[in-house]
Design a protein around this nucleic acid. Sequence first.
DNA 1: AGCACGCCGACT
DNA 2: GTCGGCGTGCTC
Length: 721
Amino acid sequence: MSRGDGNGEGGSQRHAPEQLALIRETVRERKERQPRAKPRTWRGAEMAERLPVARVLVDKGLVHLDRYFDYAVPAAMDEEAQPGVRVRVRFGAGEREGRREGGGLINGFIVERRADTDFTGRLAPIAQVLSPEPVLTPQLLQLCRAVADRYAGSLADVVQLAVPPRRAKAEKQPSQRRPAKPPVPEPGGWERYPDGPAFLRALAEKAAPRAVWTALPGPGGWADELARAMATTLATGRGALAVLPDGKSAARVDAALTALVGEGQHVLLTADAGPEPRYRRWLAVSRGAVRAVVGTRAAMFAPVRRLGLAAIWEDGDSSHSEERAPQPHAREVLLQRAVTEQAAFLLGAHSCTVEAAQLVESGFARPLAADRDTVRAVMPRVRTAAEGDEGRDPAARSARLPSLAWRTAREALVRGPVLVQVPRRGYVPRLVCERCREPARCTHCSGPLEAAGEGTALRCGWCAREVPQWRCPMCSGTRLRGSVIGARRTAEELGRAFPSVPIRTSGGAHVLESVPDRPALVVATPGAEPVPEGEAGYAAALLLDGWALLSRPDLRSGEEALRRWLGAASLVRPQGEGGSVVVVAEESMRPVQALVRWDPAGHALRELADRAELGFPPVSRMAAVTGSPEAVAGLLAAAGDAGLPEEAQVLGPVPLPVPEPGRPRNPGDPPPGELWERALVRVPRGSGAALAAALKTAQVGRLTRREGPIAHVRIDPLDIG
DNA sequence: AGCACGCCGACT
DNA sequence: GTCGGCGTGCTC
């Protein structure tokens, strides 16, 4: 069909399967269409002269509809119906009495204008152009496609994450034009890193350096340094994007960037701005009126023009992982962007994830860290205290504090606020060797062992194999311990130990942003630590959550504990100014040693080596398949037929624990009352794309053929034991 | 997922 | 001869 006017009979006949059907259809069209001379719909309408076909992405996340649909462009919409605009189209309708009807109007995006279509039926017309704003640009579309492929998801789902819902009011206003390029800023705090100035120089020369930056401790420095990297990029005329784990830290980088380049160069994209201001700011970016974005994870898709720098702060924070399908991670999306948009990449944190270590190890990024001397000069004094080591001090006993922790707090409280990090509720303990505290692992697949109930045999949480007689591979011990969840009561008991000191708490629903620089006990759960006002920092920190953090049944528990501790310890004054940290945990444990030495990168490298040995992510790529036993088995079988890589290893399936009632359900969690299973599929690094493709093909096949219940697929599952 | 089409049994 | 059950397949 050369013209998508919908009246031509050629389209419906040309590929008719057999002669009979062809004749029947022709007869019916003749017979039934002619008497209806004046249909009120599109049939009489003029179609666009040039490029009368619009290829449309319909806004339905269903994986088996993950393709484009062609629609005819009415002449009246010719001008506005450009690639990238939002449209409404009829979808899902059948054909009756020779004309289209039924089928709801759904939203979509035009991705392309074409001269012809390969669809053999008759094209329906676009019902409405919602707005002439080309929001889904080719580059953003390309990014969404890549993310959908990596995560075995549908394009429409990713586009929903990437393009915010429309706000007509915001679209009507023009975006203010940006001011001139700002000057190249001074390197500032980057001088503290041997390779820091060189990194900035590379940015200033429009190169695309990639770095994993281990930020020095201190409450304020990192935000300013991140802003300086962005400002340097802006000075070249290119754009910059920084993604932060929460609105609080995003606001700090935003403020630092404003101090460097003034207003008008950048926007803050966070949820707490409200939908309309947020869309206005997003539009300013999309229109090219603003070239820099500071935001939380949804900003990872921000359509920054000529991206020169993609940055992420604290990539180990779980809020960088999107909850909505297909659950992409900001670090992975920004990596993708840095490569395809040829931008610089900066991953910064006080701690270091295994993924970050791997970026360095693989040669993709260079480490950006300070010398040991510099680290020692700014880090607090860090000491360990054994659990239950309460000494003879009655006050320490009443607070259930090790005596070192109690003495440290008492001394520090003369000079300033003292942070007390306490465990959060709901940490599940994992089984460890009672003697040496080595986590109990399956001898077959290295999954975590679980006790199904009192007196029952041990079972692997991954492959479900039973382990009747466990023996520790490190010390040959045979007894296991499940660590006790830390008592939150400690916070209250502190009040009795320090009766004259004000106590402030931060955590859960009541998170304090900052506290005055005055003596006080500040009790906070990990991640909710208030920043002390001024530049000084806490006089001391007590990290009381050691066991709770280290005994979580998660591959990342060590990394996560260290990250939490470093986050708190980074807010403490340098050793030279009396800053002191006491961590209550077993001294010999790897994350504890890494904290004492302040060596997050070294810790991550050692973890990475372990993962390589055990075949864990990120050295391998994993996918989790959850659903009813039938759904999981069906999908795995279909994936096998759909080109699952030969090296793929299927672990499990194992029954999924029933989620606690009242907890918000995540995608992939079983609905109440249903017993679900989970299987893990593991492939070597490099076969990740093939894994995602096979799972998606399997999913599509089963959905279209309606084979049994549907399974949920998650690439890079977070909680794999 | 919706939704229409179509090929079989109860009813006028 | 017609209405309507829900199994099957498509959605421009």
